[in-house]
């Protein structure tokens, strides 16, 4: 039970991010508005091949796909 998220392919980094997000959302109005700004992550990336930029993808979405493919049930 302790690390059941591992079986679903989630990384420790993702686990920590979710735990932190939950803590932020549990705060009182004042500190919450301050803290929730830290939750935003808007990185995008693209693979370059033979001098050409590939498709630009959001990192969060790509990570979700990668974690799903790491799940033990697959």
């Amino acid at each position: 039970m302790a690390f059941s998220w591992k079986a679903a392919g989630l990384t420790y980094n993702r686990y920590l991010a979710i735990a932190a997000r939950t803590v932020r959302r549990s705060l009182k109005e004042g500190p919450r508005l301050q803290a929730e700004r830290r939750d935003l992550m808007d990185l995008k990336f693209a693979k370059w091949e033979s001098g050409k930029q590939g498709e630009v993808k959001p990192l969060a979405a790509a990570n979700a796909v990668a974690m799903a493919s790491q799940a033990e049930s697959k």
Binding site: S4, W5, A7, A8, G9, R14, S26, A64, A68, A71
Partner: peptide, 14 residues
């Protein structure tokens, strides 16, 4: 499976 796992983490924290 991932959404369920994430919700379980949230429950643990909460």
């Amino acid at each position: 499976e991932q959404d369920t796992a994430e919700a379980k983490i949230e429950l643990e924290v909460l």
